[in-house]
């Protein structure tokens, strides 16, 4: 669910005004009513969330699952408000960056760039700005449907030359641009929890077989660069942490084992996300059924 897509101008005006006059707490307060509306009337959004919720909270009654969906909606609403709060210059968040020295040394010790493997967790758009101090251009591999929101949140149209977008709709899914960016020492951010029609590998997530895109690992193995997992979480009203401490070096021992080893890298990543969801269950905004065999069609 994306409130930006589902809301209207009047709705945004209420949130903006509330944010200006009452701060974050006031704007968050509005969410409880708005999200209740979506919980009752937006069957698509509820259904999209349920694939994750029913696996994350096994054994819950139907009512409790709906309550969990409600909490997930509110959590994403807060994330969107936080994004606007930062972009509009109303305030800032304290950000604790974990693993910064590691990522810095990776970039220092190699002429190549890195692949940053992100997911729909926490508030990566806000926290991504903390990586600006690395002084490298960050390329986001973004589907057109997400472009508008990301451009707004990262000020891409306002002359932010350090953040650029590569569209997966480009020739060959943008891999030439990605390889070029890595070759030039830049950072390429790829979403790891949704395939958007690209090829996938199977991994067990929350007890069931799910399908994850594997392009980040395949590209990293070919380009001989590391994959740095990035996730973030809101830990208090004014504080986030950004964690880039999990680094993977995907390499294939032989061509024959490529598929098998690719599945191993994907499983490792699924494990990282599972640990994250255990700690921050309402900050993984997984509004897509990655367990559905429809994702397998792209293999």
């Amino acid at each position: 669910m994306d409130i930006r897509k589902r809301g209207n101008k009047l709705g945004f005006w209420f949130f903006r005004t509330s944010l200006k006059w009452t701060g974050l707490s006031g704007a968050y307060g509005l969410l409880y009513f708005v999200c209740l509306y979506y919980l009752i009337f937006d069957r698509t959004a509820v259904s999209a969330s349920m694939a994750y919720i029913k696996r994350r909270f096994r054994g819950l009654s139907s009512i409790s699952k709906y309550h969990a969906v409600y909490k997930l909606f509110i959590s994403q609403g807060k994330s969107l408000i936080d994004r606007y709060y930062v972009v509009s210059g109303l305030g800032r968040f304290d950000i604790e960056l974990r693993g910064y020295d590691r990522i810095k040394s990776l970039l220092r010790d190699s002429k190549k760039g890195i692949i940053l493997l992100t997911a729909h967790v926490g508030n990566w758009q806000v926290t991504m700005t903390t990586l600006e101090k690395l002084g490298r251009t960050v390329y986001l591999l973004m589907s057109p449907e997400e472009n508008a929101a990301v451009k707004d949140s990262l000020n891409i149209d306002s002359g932010n030359e350090k953040v650029k977008i590569i569209s997966p709709d480009n020739f060959l899914g943008g891999v030439i641009e990605i390889m070029k960016a890595i070759d030039e020492g830049s950072i390429v951010s790829i979403m790891g929890d949704r395939s958007y029609g690209h090829s996938t590998s199977e991994a067990v997530l929350l007890g069931d077989r799910a399908y994850f895109p594997h392009s980040a690992f395949s590209i990293a193995a070919s380009a001989q660069c590391p994959v740095v997992v990035l996730h973030s979480a809101k830990v208090s009203t004014k504080k986030y942490f950004v964690d880039v401490s999990h680094v993977m070096e995907p390499r294939f021992s032989s061509r024959a084992k490529k598929k098998e080893e690719l599945a191993g890298f994907v499983q490792e990543y699924a494990g990282v996300l599972e640990v994250y969801s255990a700690e921050y269950p309402y900050q993984w905004f997984l509004f897509h059924d990655i367990w559905s065999e429809e994702n397998k069609a792209a293999n």
Binding site: L172, V175, I176, H198, S199, S215, S222
Partner: peptide
Amino acid sequence: LDSLDAVEIVV
């Protein structure tokens, strides 16, 4: 061939 094969061709 697919986009991941393109990566190998670039290499």
